[in-house]
Amino acid sequence: MSSQTGAVPLLVRDMTVAYQKKPVLRNVNLSVPEGKLIGIIGPNGAGKSTFIKAVQGLIPTASGTAEVYGKPFSQQRRSVGYVPQRESVDWDFPTDALDVVLMGRYGRLGWFRRPGKADRQFALDCLKKVGMADYADRQISQLSGGQQQRVFLARALAQEAQLYFMDEPFAGVDAATERAIIQLLNDLKKQQKTVLVVHHDLQTVDEYFDWVILLNRRVIAAGPVKEIFTAENLQKTYGGRLQVLGTQVLLTNDKTSGEADAT
């Protein structure tokens, strides 16, 4: 896809988002390279989720544009996959795991077509890739948190996108799921897909990601992990709440900041 146009997977120009006149994100300018796993890092309320929602047009922006492979987002929906936060949906909804994964196919079906046999087979393959094939007909409320997260990832795979946005996929999952997600991210990378992941855990950043975007209401720094993920930049991103002890980074539990989690 990129070879035809030479355009980058995601280009954000001058994006500002405001909730009730207070800017949550200010003048975000970004150009994201292809085939990389990219962590979006920043403190609570830094606007990480807001950023990936605004780029996809899910919340109104005060200004700015987002281009996917050289075209406006609205023309490129089929090349974009999205994994919302797990808590954003009602897991008591009457449906099973396979059906949730099938929802990933809806974007390709247009207005009237229903998912067919080929779609079901594809969805099943996606469940297999996250190690959930045995749970295809399991009611979603009967799944553990980690299993629900894997169903969400399988659904994103079913979207067959080039560019993925994942909102905290590692939040509150078990070790098996964490391994499954990392495996999956690396598979996607091998296929030259680009993945942006909202991430919380500073300890694992250099292990999981190639690239990092440090965000706190604005882009503090963005680039390859080795160059950008430095104590100095982290200090800028987290302010006084961060302590760097040798090679270890610690987040102090500073509750006085009083920032609501706008993620």
Binding site: Y82, S88, L109, P115
Partner: peptide
């Protein structure tokens, strides 16, 4: 009946529904 998949996805996960253009 005609828009079953849209009604279902809008009920279960409106964020994804909006992202894929419903």
């Amino acid at each position: 009946g005609l828009f079953f998949k849209q009604f279902k996805l809008c009920s279960f996960d409106p964020a994804l529904a909006a992202a894929i253009g419903i």
